[in-house]
Design a binder for these strands. Structure first.
Lengths: 242, 242
DNA sequence: CAAAGATAGTGTAATGTGTACACTTACCCA
DNA sequence: TGGGTAAGTGTACACATTACACTATCTTTG
């Protein structure tokens, strides 16, 4: 796809969250410049006539082969200086015709089930990796600010609408996985009995006819998230808050 | 200021909220086109080298002469079709050199104390008016979508961070005014005693040595909002939720 | 095959929070 | 001075949150 198809002034960047049964990670791409590694968020210029949400979904699809992911625009970054670091300018020169142009970027949060994820090389990513959100990592452009803002927005949002957390879990999961996920998000340990009590009164959490196998302790019940029950009964209510 | 100074691809639009002791209004501008009135949100193209937040503050200042208003970016609208209604195209032609350009707009919510407000004519507004947020009004471009989204975001935000409501009230106010404001925002009546009980346990709400005068009933105590006390003691806590 | 190791799974009592509800007070005005 | 009007006040009940310790069930190993 030639640059002719792109709007050189607008890009999208994606903060893609995944959960590895222990902590929250974000997906970074690595670009190679003269031996030094520079990490960045996946993103791309918006194409001419392309809607913003579509552009973000396209970036995600090119990277993960996944469609219909949880995707939410959270903020637009437009500082005139945001792409003027010399290292970044050099990188832009290597891939675009108008490196001097001011680019405003619309940032999106996305949630993926790690089990579904199988990344493939893409036009803008030489290498892709999961990076723990809590571990500092210098990123190119203003991507540190973007990632930090996205993470803060996600934590706020999940308090208000905890159901989006299920986008980070496999189809079947144990209550222990669910609790670990919430602990990773709110950043503190939660009481097991109270957590279960609150969760299990939500009817959209349905037990499956299946238990863990191959574990050297009492096997856990598998549950699934029933989207229909949620929409029918809980859509308007706030069902619990931390 | 000539168009030379503007970035023809990015604009800001402001949803400006005010409270008239009864209901919430938003500030609209009226443009005159061949006798028919078309209403729109105040907004403008972003200038070259101008930060987005600065552009929004500039639009507000040009319209209200007020600075340091509550101002929060809430969403960016970038549908390729958003400025293609014939009536809007005609309007754009009359004020800009490149009417065909795709313009992406960054939308901001703003809160003003109506008492401070004294609008003046500006380059983009022939006439300015307060319009009740609950009363339907067709707006140009995609401004209905923008205003509705802004209102929804404000209502959500104020549940999480109720303190921003004080940006809509005068320096001194009664608890009745405060309650009416909350009722306008949440869209339902609240119990007087419970409302007071919850409010008065917040130490940043401080009674003044002053009461209402000239009312034909028991005069109400005036209160003020103490920003310092709020920041010191309540910044990290959620102090109440509806 | 029995015991040890590991995590799943369970209930209750105390405290705190939200909700519903009706009368008295203080001022103005006629 | 009495009537009109909105301000201001407290209590009882229901519900939600919190703190906390033992038993159940599986695998592994000696």
């Amino acid at each position: 796809m030639s640059e002719f198809h792109y709007n050189p002034h607008i890009s999208v960047d994606c903060v893609i969250f995944g959960f590895d049964d222990e902590k929250i990670n974000i997906l970074l791409i690595k670009r190679k410049q003269e031996g030094e590694n520079v990490y960045a968020l996946p993103g791309d210029l918006v194409q001419k006539g392309e809607d913003l949400d579509v552009a973000a979904a396209r970036v995600l699809f090119e990277l993960t082969s996944l469609e219909n992911l949880y995707l939410e625009q959270f903020k637009t970054f437009g500082s005139p200086e945001r792409t003027s670091d010399p290292v970044d300018v050099e990188w832009i020169k290597s891939i675009r015709e108008h490196p001097e142009a001011r680019v405003i970027t619309v940032a999106y949060n996305s949630l993926v089930k790690t089990e579904d994820f199988d990344y493939r090389p893409s036009s803008f990513a030489e290498e892709v990796l999961w990076h723990p959100i809590e571990k500092p990592q210098k990123l190119g452009f203003d991507h540190n600010e973007i990632a930090n803002t996205g993470w803060a927005m996600l934590r706020e949002k999940i308090k208000r609408e905890p159901v989006i957390a299920f986008s980070l879990l496999p189809e079947k999961f144990t209550l222990r996985q669910l609790q670990t996920l919430y602990e990773a998000i709110v950043g503190q340990e939660l009481d097991k009995r109270n957590f279960r009590k609150r969760m299990l009164r939500n009817r959209f959490l349905v037990p499956m006819n299946e238990k863990e196998t191959g574990v050297s302790h009492k096997p856990a019940q598998y549950y699934r998230f029933d989207d229909l029950v949620y929409k029918e009964e809980f859509a308007k209510d706030q069902w619990f808050l931390f």
